[in-house]
Design a protein around this nucleic acid. Structure first.
Lengths: 237, 237
DNA sequence: CGTGCAGTTGAACGGGGTCAAGTGGCGTGG
DNA sequence: CCACGCCACTTGACCCCGTTCAACTGCACG
């Protein structure tokens, strides 16, 4: 339960998606401890690299990170990871990691070798099902993300992004109205399929309307309902 | 091994992603048969609906289908299903289906109650791992799709779509150069984040260049390398 | 034969990308 | 301490690609 020096983004294991794994009866009944070790990553450090052998999954214990996909010409940010999120789930397809994860802030990460998760799953059907559920949720989220990229206009994408982060912080017991934006405008753009300029413009717009405030690398949602309104309005297509 | 009346899209179970499940030793050793029944769906019929209880996964045995996500304002086609593909994998997250699957042609579908898959997984770690691998691959594919939507221009999207279908048909033992396009232009557009008009224009363009031919609801790739060239060229962003 | 829908094609518009300049915070080195 | 350069971000002006709107074709229904 050690706190990171920088503090603030720590979450109890209770809210971690991997906790069913860590606390499974299987682990108590002679299975190995799922977590091999906890590692720290400094801002900008790579948690795992694309092309690395896919034999490990990770749980973000503190700090934030981004998962991105690189095709040689540029990169797309698949998702942002908050404390309690899992990464590297494609480990279970064997082969190599297709994407990479990079720490956006100093992070503490639980390292879980895939084979240990699999051993745990062998001992407990409940654990195995939990693993499937985590993957299924991740799949559903990614499908939603793709749908957003295909259908929404720029302001709607940004509104959705802010509301999504808001909800995820709230689920973790933090404020839904005010939170850090550890990623830069460029990363937001790479996540939403927009340029930095457009992200900047839309955020400025929202601020000019008085719907949000933008202190340095933070957001305060002043009128989240207005954002929901933007999102609900007839989409781009 | 019955063939459908319309024939042509039948695949041997050997190429089905679910075959490891069906043929697992667990099934032989007293586990239940994974497949509850085989159902047929006519063109346009819904295989499962959004909001339906998520308790079943499906394997397309013959025919093609589309999985789409609906948000009230319109819909996004998440992926197209070819014979041997699995659908409804989000079943394992519990709750309800977020997306729906619709037959594009007359289909024969293996219906696999989720609990049976789970029972099989309990008997065999290999089966359980296979299930995870299928989900992980689906996740990786969806991430690639999102990256494409975020970064590629219209002609590159269409080229990628054609090459992707080509490869998937080839993996199933059919021609990589010539195959049916069971989905309409609108569905292609909903998959690629483009309008029907743009899809039509780009396809006409490719045809005018002599790279492809477009008989009624079919494609023949005359110069697939040209398509690969389009795809490799510096992306939209 | 008429109606309807899928597809194609043309013309014009506009959202967002591109290019460019300007601002401000921060670290580094004098 | 300040000077400097760097980088993230912002803002403006312009332009292009894909959307929108519309007309037309052709095959498939009743």
């Amino acid at each position: 339960m050690a706190n990171l020096a920088e503090g603030g983004n720590q979450v109890a294991c209770a809210t971690c998606v991997m906790s069913p794994l860590c606390n499974s009866r299987a682990a108590a009944n002679g299975g190995p401890a799922p977590v091999e070790c906890r590692r720290r990553f400094a801002t900008g450090e790579r948690i795992y690299a694309a092309g690395a052998p896919r034999d490990t999954v990770y749980a973000i214990r503190a700090g934030t990170a981004q998962v991105s996909l690189n095709d040689g010409h540029g990169s797309h940010v698949v998702r942002f990871l908050l404390p309690g999120d899992a990464a590297g789930l494609d480990a279970f397809a064997g082969g190599n990691h297709a994407n990479e994860a990079v720490a956006l802030e100093d992070c503490e990460v639980c390292v879980i070798p895939a084979y240990r998760a699999e051993i745990l799953g062998k001992h407990s059907e409940a654990t195995c099902a939990q693993l499937r559920a985590i993957m299924a949720r991740s799949l559903a989220d990614t499908e939603m993300h793709a749908a957003m990229l295909a259908r929404l206009a720029a302001p709607q994408r940004v509104a959705r992004f802010l509301l999504d982060l808001s909800q995820r912080w709230q689920e973790r017991g933090f404020s839904a109205m005010s939170f850090r934006l550890p990623m830069g405008r460029r990363a937001i753009g790479q996540h939403l399929g927009l340029t930095t300029e457009t992200v900047s413009r839309v955020l400025s717009d929202f601020q000019a309307h008085g719907w949000i405030e933008l202190p340095w690398r933070e957001v305060r949602l002043v009128q989240p309902d207005k954002l929901r309104e933007v999102l609900a309005s007839p989409p781009h297509r």
